[in-house]
Write a protein that binds this DNA or RNA. Structure first.
Lengths: 258, 258
DNA sequence: AATGATGTATTACCATGGTAGTACGTCAGT
DNA sequence: ACTGACGTACTACCATGGTAATACATCATT
């Protein structure tokens, strides 16, 4: 019998109505978090019925959460067969990294041209929160602040939709990043890079910001082989068969106002 | 009583199992098409019950299709109030255009570096189909070929996920583009631009391709004010209140291999 | 007449039952 | 021993019923 990753039976869902209160949304966010944090492991099977029973809700909202997670690419639903957590695909990680890099670099270029004191202050506030989370060893808090930092950059540029799109691509990177954090000591370097990016933006130095941001976003590619070595069961096996992606590490993007 | 845009009662859904055969998927694609083609008008209200009755299916798959369309940003679901087709937001259009432009230009730069004869042939095949659809006055066919052309470019670059992401952004542009087609004579110019892009890619001339592609993708911005003037009821009213997006028309992106 | 309370209709949300399709263990036939 | 058919258990899918919350028309009150 397949066992659900959610083991506390009757675990009560939040009853406060501050955020989106629908049962569907709560189940979705809960499963999303558990998957990204690898508490539900890649390849593990999920079951509408079991998850519903574990959470003390009916199958309908669980099913709807499953459907969204499938669209996100985090689970695979096989009709009349079953549902499993998608394994990490190195190809997909590279693809997602490319999309994210392209979007965030463009956003940064725009943000650098029109930064305000208020916007810079927001960046600093997020950085402060991130440093605090790091000092407390709060991985989840660090992660949330990381997302907020990049979202704030997008907001500064005015193209927050591009930030949300980059966030969508990011979903495929998050599990690798999550596994990387305890393994290496990426937290401190990430914060330093964020600080460099923030000051470059505030100084309007798009070129330097682009350089640091690009390197910052590509760390996931550097860590990927080691993580794959460390957790081979979490990864797709047919990655090498598929055509390799072009090498874009040398592809420089120069943004200039014309 | 709110009337559904789907008026043929008992309209039978396809029973062939070639494409995704789930009722949910069929309802989703049908509603998506009708919304993009403005057969269901922006602002119009939808009802699970009515759509289900019109299509002769139960409310569950209709509801699931609604949820996905809401995530796509094409409908607004208000719990216990009702569901309406989202109006077109000019701000959202500009945001989506930005994301799409950024992604597709990056994809084109990569594709230009590694085009093969086979890949060029695929582009030509799509262009041939598109010319045929245009000659037959088949808007829908023209549209499908258009999507296929840009997807093929992404595939050529190896970063097809970026193409899918751009396609997701495209959803917000499609209604404007669909309204534009009969209004102006954009079909012929679009094909000519596609041909120029294809030959630039095949020649490995990334610079020229980028120039044409950028202009090609920005036509929607040029047409937007006229369409808004022509169909004021289709658009959001609070667009002007929100902060204007930065002017990026002068922002040139130079892609070069380092 | 203007306003507040209330009843009613409608909505999306959640719960649950039934069904078709798949996987897999069992067993008969070779 | 090996292979094939068959039956059982399980799955996600679809259908349907009940419920809380919202909107709106109606009516009592000021």
């Amino acid at each position: 019998m397949a066992t659900s990753g959610i083991e506390e039976r009757g675990r009560v869902l939040s009853s406060d109505r501050s955020r989106e209160s629908s049962v569907r949304g709560q189940v979705y966010r809960l499963l999303l978090r558990d998957i990204v944090h690898c508490e539900i492991k890649p390849g593990q099977s999920l079951s509408e019925k079991e998850v519903a029973a574990s959470l003390g809700v009916s199958r309908t909202p669980v099913r709807e959460a499953f459907l969204q997670l499938a669209v996100d690419g985090l689970i695979d639903i096989s009709p009349q067969r079953g549902t499993t957590v998608a394994r990490i695909s190195t190809r997909q990680v590279r693809q997602a990294q490319f999309s994210r890099e392209v979007l965030e670099r463009a956003v940064l270029a725009v943000a650098s041209r029109q930064v305000t004191a208020e916007g810079g202050g927001k960046l600093d506030a997020v950085l402060f929160a991130q440093r605090q989370a790091a000092a407390a060893g709060d991985y989840a808090g660090f992660y949330d602040a990381d997302e907020l930092f990049h979202a704030e950059l997008a907001s500064l540029s005015g193209f927050d939709a591009a930030g949300r799109l980059a966030g969508g691509a990011r979903v495929h990177l998050n599990r690798v990043r999550w596994l990387t954090l305890p393994e290496f000591h990426r937290i401190d370097t990430a914060i330093v890079e964020h600080e460099k990016i923030a000051s470059a933006v505030k100084a309007g130095d798009a070129g330097h910001g682009d350089q640091v941001l690009t390197a910052h976003l590509r760390t996931v590619l550097c860590d990927l082989p080691a993580i794959r070595e460390r957790f081979p069961g979490y990864f797709d096996r047919d990655d090498e068969e598929r055509p390799a992606l072009p090498d874009t590490t040398g592809l420089m993007i120069g943004w200039r106002a014309g």
